[in-house]
Amino acid sequence: MAAAVLAAAYADVGDTARAITLLAAVLIDAKRILGHDHPDTLVTATHLAALYLRDGFAEKAFAIFDETLAGCERTLGLDHPDTLAIREALPILRQQYRPRQA
């Protein structure tokens, strides 16, 4: 998954658009090769969702976060630390990134 590392490097230097493009391709490959609910696929999806959120695409990010949480619950179980981390972080992130009311 060298491409995932490269995507993280792009994100670190502020090239979020390139990081998203690359990581989206990595996620497609991970789903095809490893399966939708493989732990590495779920981690990649979480990273992609975080990039979308960082770049202002909250709706897309939360769709991926929700899908990833469901995958974690199926694969890792309801009490797994990764499942709990996503479940606990989502309400906080939704509060921070909800659309502003006029």
Score class of each variant (00 low, 15 high):
residue 83 T to E: 02
residue 53 L to E: 01
residue 37 D to Q: 09
residue 56 G to T: 06
residue 88 E to N: 15
residue 77 G to S: 03
residue 93 L to K: 12
residue 76 L to P: 00
residue 78 L to N: 10
residue 32 R to C: 13
residue 2 A to G: 14
residue 71 G to Y: 01
residue 51 L to R: 00
residue 81 P to V: 07
residue 58 A to R: 12
residue 64 I to Q: 00
residue 21 T to I: 11
residue 70 A to R: 10
residue 46 T to N: 15
residue 73 E to I: 15
residue 96 Q to Y: 12
residue 86 I to V: 05
residue 48 L to H: 08
residue 74 R to Y: 07
residue 46 T to W: 09
residue 100 R to T: 07
residue 26 V to I: 04
residue 59 E to I: 09
residue 94 R to P: 07
residue 93 L to N: 05
residue 32 R to H: 13
residue 47 H to T: 15
residue 33 I to L: 13
residue 15 D to F: 05
residue 20 I to Y: 06
residue 69 L to N: 00
residue 8 A to S: 13
residue 21 T to S: 13
residue 44 T to M: 09
residue 93 L to V: 08
residue 14 G to L: 01
residue 78 L to M: 10
residue 37 D to L: 04
residue 49 A to G: 06
residue 58 A to P: 03
residue 21 T to R: 10
residue 83 T to D: 02
residue 100 R to L: 08
residue 6 L to S: 02
residue 72 C to Q: 04
residue 12 D to M: 09
residue 16 T to F: 08
residue 29 D to A: 14
residue 13 V to G: 09
residue 27 L to I: 13
residue 7 A to C: 09
residue 73 E to H: 06
residue 51 L to T: 02
residue 30 A to L: 09
residue 34 L to W: 02
residue 62 F to W: 06
residue 48 L to D: 06
residue 32 R to W: 10
residue 24 A to R: 13
residue 7 A to D: 01
residue 61 A to L: 05
residue 2 A to N: 12
residue 1 M to G: 15
residue 21 T to W: 08
residue 63 A to N: 10
residue 38 H to M: 15
residue 33 I to C: 08
residue 76 L to C: 01
